[in-house]
Design a protein around this nucleic acid. Structure first.
Lengths: 157, 157
DNA sequence: GCAATTTTAATTGCACACGATTTAATGTTG
DNA sequence: CAACATTAAATCGTGTGCAATTAAAATTGC
């Protein structure tokens, strides 16, 4: 039984996503290196360029990351000089992340990145959008299902 | 200009893949925890269950990982008792990874994992296969394109 | 046959990720 | 308003990922 049902790695959606994610990160590394950014740092800036002054919690909700990941990352971004971390005067539990002038100016410098990457992907532009939508739906399904797992332990089957 | 062309995070294929990959890892964590495995460790075992005794380099080629990642991971798998690392007597640079009896026995215990996860995905079974294929193709394209980047620096544009 | 090159792992250093815990501040409730 | 609960970050420990370097062994050229 064990031999007959050997799992084929290449057919697994999860592995495809896992390995594609790393391939993306590697591709971005080359493009972002001139800006002194890693891909997760770039993601945080994308969020802030959309709306400046977001709190750590909000950024985390947007990127599906928690404070354990974001706090050190944001401190590095602050160290580079792209953001400032400002504790809210009204509610001192919260920390707002503000772009510095350098951080704002970076948006223009990073403008070419998405186009450069799109050239690398080697997939027709219209397919990219559809694929992104499908993968996002997949993520949302998993996100929801994982929450369930904590409660009911899948033992019923 | 900067405001008009703001990059919308949710439309980016890369972010979808990045966040879906983490969602997968989280989902697997719950399923693999009883086996004492992380997802990358599980991937290595999948490869070894297909063919035992592979060298580090071969495993890396299969999973798109290098020795910097695999060496410590394999040492942990050895510490748990699922594999042994055996240095080739003929070519002492090479290390073969052999499953222990416990590592072999684990295949049967892990047999339920893919099915359990498929239930969580919430995507019709036939779509999963197609999606996996598309994402794998995307990864292969990126993999190839990233190799190019090192040589010609995209400066032509 | 031996020096130069190539190949294979290991090692090192840095940056995520995330579960779990801690700390501090804020809400809530009797 | 005091006890309790909730919330937001920070902290801690473990485990990836990967570039760069090192070390050892095999291969090649001459």
């Amino acid at each position: 039984m064990s031999q007959a049902e050997t799992v084929i790695l290449e057919k697994q959606l999860c592995f495809a996503v896992y390995s594609a994610s790393h391939a993306f990160t590697r591709a971005y590394r080359t493009l972002l290196e001139p800006l002194g950014l890693t891909y997760p740092q770039y993601l945080v800036l994308l969020v802030l360029w959309e709306r400046d002054g977001m709190r750590v919690k909000e950024i985390g909700a947007r990127l599906f990351l928690d404070s354990g990941t974001l706090t050190p990352l944001l401190k590095r971004l602050e160290g580079i000089g792209y953001v400032r971390r400002i504790r809210d005067a009204n509610d001192e539990r919260q920390v707002s992340i503000m772009l510095t002038p350098a951080g704002q100016a970076l948006e223009a410098k990073a403008a070419a990145v998405p186009k450069d990457l799109q050239c690398l992907i080697g997939v027709p532009g219209d397919e990219i959008g559809m694929l992104a939508e499908q993968v996002a739906k997949l993520r949302n399904g998993l996100q929801h299902a994982s929450g369930e797992l904590g409660t009911r332990e899948l033992e019923g089957e």
